[in-house]
Design a protein around this nucleic acid. Structure first.
Lengths: 214, 214
DNA sequence: ACATGTGAAGTTATTCACAGCC
DNA sequence: GGCTGTGAATAACTTCACATGT
């Protein structure tokens, strides 16, 4: 388990995906799986699966392929913070509540444990087990619960300030739904989910590159 | 305006982003902008901005840079379907409703015009101007409204079947929130938004690659 | 035979660097 | 000077192909 060699974002994303697929297989009592089966499930190629596993130093056997439970555990050992990861979400609008619901109870090692908003109607309420605080309490609550991750679901105009508040409170990773680029330098890793952009990509590629006979 | 040369998904994504930034600049009465300013706003580099614009054949002037309104219009001419693009969403749970709300009134050329669910409590209701039909009516409604795009916000187990229904009804582009790879061959362009994967990436990179002194 | 693991090759994406222009 | 546009160089990612093991 060494960090000398850096692993690409794409590989980490696929490892996360593999793990979820493996969980499904375990539920179906599958014991072994080989690279091209996992590739078919994940939408990639067998080579890519093998390379990704190579990156975390996981090995299978040429005889039986990979062992499902073992691989899942290896991915977890590599990716998960042993102490678990706690996240805070800022912005309890429709999208924020949907996100809280989505992650609620899904993974005890990666859960949203606090919410924030500036709307008095939302402050003090509990949504899916997640209590909504006033934004003014970010520093306090984040420090108190050792929260390291943030989810931003506020309007674009507010996102940069909120991001700065989160970083100042000790947060080092942000999932950002606001359609704005966050300027945080090296202070935090930011992953953007831009719904408009994704939808426009679908519109463009869905309606233009039609039916190239392949 | 020719399609001989294919444009990458990444470039299309950034063009979508540039356009939104330009809209903001227009609202502030900015007339001109140069590549590194747009780069700073978008989080990219000046070279990349210039390359992206080259891809759609848009040119600025060495004297004044690019003209904001003109560039926005060029991007629109390149990316938008002149007839507009209509989308249907399947799955009116929390996430589905949040998505409908998110896109509601945002862009008349790209709007969600129909919803579907199999829950009798949801069928017949209107959410943010979007009427929810029974899933059994997909073929009918999609054809009737000339819908070409789909958004999938159903549980993973149901996603593949729903995707097939949509494609059979004539849909060629899908924005998929279900954590499953959709097997549709060349029938449709699929863009996946995998919230768990994104969150796990944030957890990994936010908590591991900390503070390399740059 | 069919699997993994991996150097080598290929492909795609980004950045550099500079010619040309204002 | 600072800008754009773009060939050339670089870096990142993916696939190929095959040695090796069982």
């Amino acid at each position: 388990l060494r960090f000398e060699e850096l692993i690409s974002e794409k590989t980490i994303g696929r490892l996360s995906l593999y793990r979820r697929l493996l969980a499904g297989l375990m539920a179906d009592n599958h014991q072994n799986i080989c690279s091209h089966e996992l590739a078919a499930l994940s939408g990639g190629t067998a080579s890519q699966v093998r390379r990704d596993l190579m990156a975390i130093g996981y090995s299978g056997s040429p005889a039986k392929g990979y062992q499902v439970a073992d691989m899942a555990e290896s991915i977890g050992r590599f990716m998960d913070n042993p102490d678990g990861s706690r996240a805070a979400i800022v912005g309890m609008g429709n999208l924020g509540r949907a996100i809280v619901k989505y992650f609620s109870g899904r993974n005890p090692k990666l859960s949203i444990v606090a919410a924030f908003d500036n709307d008095p109607n939302k402050i003090g309420r509990t949504v899916h087990g997640c209590f909504c605080h006033d934004i003014a309490e970010i520093a306090q609550v984040v420090a108190g619960l050792s929260i390291r991750l943030g989810v931003i679901t506020v309007p674009a105009e507010a996102a940069q300030d909120i991001a700065r508040l989160l970083v100042n409170a000790g947060i080092t990773g942000i999932l950002n739904f606001a359609p704005t680029h966050l300027h945080l330098g090296e202070d935090a890793y930011v992953e953007d989910i831009d719904l408009t952009m994704s939808m426009e990509k679908v519109a463009y590629f869905g309606q233009m590159g039609d039916s190239p006979d392949g």
